[in-house]
Nucleic acid binder design. Structure first.
Length: 458
RNA sequence: GGAGCGGUGUCCGAGCGGUCUAAGGAGGCGGUCUUGAAAACCGCUGUGCCGAAAGGCACCGAGGGUUCGAAUCCCUCCUGCUCCGCCA
């Protein structure tokens, strides 16, 4: 069976069609919400699509699925005839009979070729349409269109008060000579940055602080590749192509710069059947994250908040379906612990249906207080999603259940520390009147200093 | 990047156009025997799709081709190992 390659893929960003086709074939038939589920739960699926303000045609998927099955059944019948025909010719038989059988075989060959062509077309169309259908949303997730419809469910600490006019991290970073945006713009472009002096140490401290917490919780630590294959990105639920894509593609390679280690950690067990007794698998990965942020220019993207490259510690879990709600809760609590431990005020938000993203069943964001952001504002610092079996289907990750059947695992991810936004939170919340930054106590052992002040030239 | 040799079931490994419904081992599960164990013997032991089921189809790295019929022949690609080149 042949798969039609991505017709929408711009030539400059794709590998040879043959290559892409071969890679996709490995995940053939898995890149979607279960067809049968769509067909059998049509109304619920349609409501879910509407709640999420997405465009997908569930009716079309259902009808294509039925048509495809009809064709496949017909095809199987013809194939059986072909096999029987070939079997009939195994031994010594009369020449006349053999001639007759060969003629029949030739006719069957043509019929089969036609049916196969039809099946391929249906399969490709079904795949294309089914790919657009998002995961079902948690019944408890707030229904709404934009981030303003998200529901605040918890607050830890209160917005930091200052006896002076606080500065933003851009100004502080430049005055302390720990972040350099201007040179990065000249060398690499806008939305890049150099960290410098204690800024370098602070970033590494944030990474190590997060890793130590995760290690204690039994996570397996990784540094992951910063590059991943297109089909892995697709499997995780990213769209690596098109003008609106947030992903950088590597020309001619069929690979992309990862936007998060969720991609490489989620791809780690792609195509595997996991041992039930090993679940849940808790992974933590350090990687660089690359995002195009096309069309995200303007004052709201000033500084480190929205950048093309940052370092992140990501958590990832593979678990049994019945455990995923519980694991999701655990991931959120770890995120809370990390930010509570730093003494940074934050709130927890239950993300609304329209803001979930296609793979997520439910998502919680932690928003830290950022005193320098528009005069003080909550800004997203972490996010944890339960993607249930959506990614597992696309990447073919299963476990062997007690009944002997292979079933899809549930996959979850969460941010432990996005360094760029972590830096903003620390720098802005811990700034002092004299322009120095007092380090949170938890970071002092990792930094080796308790205050960031400008290094004077000797 | 160049050359040579490979990729078969959980693993090892045979297979060179129809007897492959994939030999033979190993491992695993169940059973017989035994006080218990070992040994021996017998049976079972991959995945996906369609189907209520019976059953059917597909899969020998991937894709395409030749053929009435392909694990087996041809082409392309991927991947592993060895040697050479380059390199932190």
């Amino acid at each position: 069976m042949r798969i039609l390659p991505f017709s929408t893929c711009p030539p400059s960003t794709r590998a040879s069609p043959v290559l892409v086709e071969q890679r996709l074939a490995r995940y053939y038939g898995r890149t979607m919400l279960d067809h049968k589920f769509v067909r059998d739960n049509l109304e619920a699926v349609k409501k879910n699509i509407a709640d999420r303000y997405m465009k997908a045609d569930a009716d079309l998927v259902a009808s294509l699925y039925d048509k495809r099955n009809e064709t496949l059944t017909a095809l199987d019948e013809q194939r059986k005839k072909r096999n029987d025909n070939a079997a009939a010719m195994k031994g010594k038989i009369e020449a006349a009979i053999r001639e007759k059988l060969i003629a029949e075989g030739k006719a069957l060959k043509e019929t089969i070729a036609e049916l196969e062509k039809g099946a391929e077309e249906l399969e490709a169309r079904l795949l294309e349409e089914a790919r657009k259908i998002p995961n079902m949303a948690h019944p408890g997730a707030p229904v709404g269109k934009e981030d303003k419809d998200n529901l605040e469910v918890k607050r830890v600490g209160e917005p930091t008060k200052f006896d002076f006019q606080p500065k933003d991290h851009v100004q502080l970073g430049q005055e302390l000579d720990i972040i350099d945006f201007d040179t990065a713009t000249r060398v690499s472009g806008t939305k890049f940055y150099y960290l410098k002096n204690q800024g370098v140490i602070l970033e590494l401290a944030l990474v190590r602080y997060a890793l130590d917490i995760l290690m204690k919780k039994g996570f397996t630590l990784f540094t992951t590749p910063d590059v991943a294959k297109t089909e892995i990105l697709e499997g995780i639920g990213f769209n690596p192509r098109g003008a609106e894509s947030n992903i950088y593609s590597i020309e001619g390679e069929g690979t992309c710069l990862i936007g998060t280690a969720e991609i490489t950690l989620g791809g780690y067990y792609s195509g595997s059947v996991l041992d039930k007794k090993d679940l849940p698998l808790m992974l933590a990965g350090v990687s660089h994250c690359f995002r195009r942020e096309a069309g995200a220019a303007g004052q709201f993207s000033k500084g480190l908040y929205r950048v093309h490259q940052f370092t992140k510690v990501e958590m990832f879990a593979y678990c049994l379906p019945e455990d995923s709600d519980k694991i999701h809760e655990q991931l959120r609590l770890i995120e809370e612990e990390i930010f509570s431990g730093l003494g940074i005020p934050f709130r927890v938000v239950d993300t609304c249906t329209g803001d979930l993203g296609a793979p997520a069943y439910r998502k919680w964001d932690l928003e830290a207080w950022m005193p320098g952001r528009n005069g003080g504002e909550w800004g997203e610092v972490t996010s944890t999603s339960n993607c249930t079996d959506f990614q597992a289907r696309r990447l073919n990750v299963k476990f062997k259940d007690d009944d002997g059947k292979n079933k899809y695992v549930h996959m979850l991810n969460g941010t432990a520390m996005a360094c760029s936004r972590g830096l903003i939170s620390v720098i802005e919340n811990f700034q002092q009147e004299d322009g120095t930054i007092k380090m949170p106590a938890a970071l002092v052992p990792y930094c080796g200093f308790d205050t960031i002040r400008k290094i004077e030239k000797k």
